[in-house]
Design a protein around this nucleic acid. Sequence first.
DNA 1: AACCTATTTCCGCAGAGCGAAAAAGTAAGA
DNA 2: TCTTACTTTTTCGCTCTGCGGAAATAGGTT
Lengths: 255, 255
Amino acid sequence: MSREDRQLIDSLARGFAILECLSRARRPLGNGEIAALVDLPPSSVSRLTHSLTVLGYIRRSPSQRTYELTPKNLMLGYPVLAGMSLLDRVRPYLKSISEQTGETVTLAVRDGLYSTFAEVVQGVNLVAVRLSTGARLRLANSASGIAMVSALPEKEKHTVTARIRAEITRRGEDLAVFNNSLEECEATGVAIVRNTWQKGIGGVAIAVQAQGELGALTMPVATGSVSAEVMHTTLASTLREAAETISPGYEPQTG
Amino acid sequence: MSREDRQLIDSLARGFAILECLSRARRPLGNGEIAALVDLPPSSVSRLTHSLTVLGYIRRSPSQRTYELTPKNLMLGYPVLAGMSLLDRVRPYLKSISEQTGETVTLAVRDGLYSTFAEVVQGVNLVAVRLSTGARLRLANSASGIAMVSALPEKEKHTVTARIRAEITRRGEDLAVFNNSLEECEATGVAIVRNTWQKGIGGVAIAVQAQGELGALTMPVATGSVSAEVMHTTLASTLREAAETISPGYEPQTG
DNA sequence: AACCTATTTCCGCAGAGCGAAAAAGTAAGA
DNA sequence: TCTTACTTTTTCGCTCTGCGGAAATAGGTT
């Protein structure tokens, strides 16, 4: 966080740094671990975790002396979900596609340079990807991200792709992956990535829009059992059909 | 918030007061509205909303000069949902009960003196209650709350009911409603309330447990079209059957 | 252009929050 | 049981962060 912004309240940022640290962790964390991960002194972390506990956003297991997020955190997401008309429109399709394919099917929405999953219908296939509402990926390397970027109005697309490319460059990653995926999506209407954000996982996604809201109908798949060919053919077709009904007249092919 | 706690970081609490204010609002709010609702000076609110915007948790519509929560808020709920074994176990039942009844079916979990909805399968009935993940009700007057309270271990139940009764008393509400509902739930295993937290809405709920996690399988219903008798008979039976499978050998009747 | 309202920025100031150090808590090993 | 090592919490001196009133700016209406 930049110290140039005199109006940014530092202690608020610190509190959120801790919440975000816990949201990325695979298990509850102790104060010392949090302190190391967010690079703050242990006494400061102790006070911050105490405050977050009093406020109800984290709870502590006294026996383990570790902290984890509470269900209260779901509360802040409620109005986001409740107010999302697109979600109501897309929900039946999430269900039917998942039943038809056995795969996990999701609606993702854009959130700055991230793609956040708003609703997830868990697939019943043995190797269907396990995912939950609130999971978040970078636009840069996720199928949902690329699908949404390709569907932005030209002006905004230009701005957003520039920011994405700057981020990729800053991280020392390969620009060609993003560029190729975006190009292919613009040609076919469907974004497909494999093993970009996690080994063994890929995604097929198509942009959908309703009432001014843009999202991506997405199927995350296990690349070990779902071939690139199936992604490009069967799954892509399934998504195209659904998108055609969800956003009639909306032409996702802008390439 | 109590000023006796010297270790509570005030500006953190202020930030969350604003987020919670926005989570309760039915529409985006301007700075002045927020300032009035959280009882802070407008200049303080301006700086807080600016900070929350930079951190990504709210966004501003420049034309309306109003703020609303972003999808990033879903991120903090992700590990709560992803780590919930009970949810995986209950999910198929949410689906099948909703298909069978046409009603909205949910899994609620306890969160202090609140019941928070972790997953919601939206019903297709014309008057099925609309609800989303993250919705939150008081234990005191919700079916899910009462079901969970009745299933707590004796010692904890005693503590929690005392806190609930103190809250009810402090708010000047009628203790008899809570007492009667809890008593009935302990006798029948199913908690039923009508029009307690919102006119026109009621709930039927039963406690479920798996791997040490306690929750409530819940059906919120429109009281204008679903009679008390149907709640007590058909819906209650449906929930009992499901609970018997979800938590085999777990005896919710402790009365 | 004038007026009104809402919001943001500025800035003096004091106390809120910082972090190092001390104190307390906890677990493991002898 | 005692000792040691490690983790966490609390204390407290200090400074600079965040506060809020006032001034400036922004935006809409007449």
